[in-house]
């Protein structure tokens, strides 16, 4: 059985589809027995849903640099 830390790690990567099939099976098995991780995992999935629902936008680092430059030059 994997540790809770390992389970959390797999769970996080699974949110980005970067956990392997074996890892996901190990996680599922762990969640059957660990209530705390099961709850955490549920919240983690909800967070993923919320983030995609919100259609978040951000400026790239390059664009932020340009903003800072513009503020400095006061144009």
């Amino acid at each position: 059985m994997i540790s809770c830390e390992k389970a959390a790690d797999i769970c996080t990567r699974a949110q980005y589809n970067e956990a392997s099939f074996t890892e996901r099976m190990k996680l599922k098995f762990h969640l059957l027995f660990c209530k705390i991780c099961a709850e955490y995992s549920k919240y983690n999935r909800t967070l993923t849903t919320l983030c995609s629902q919100a259609r978040l936008k951000t400026l790239s680092e390059q664009e932020k640099l340009e903003l800072k430059e513009r503020m400095k030059s006061g144009l």
Binding site: L50, Q53, A54, R55, K57
Partner: peptide, 8 residues
């Protein structure tokens, strides 16, 4: 969604 986005 907008409110959610701003909250996040």
């Amino acid at each position: 969604n907008e409110e959610l986005g701003l909250a996040i």
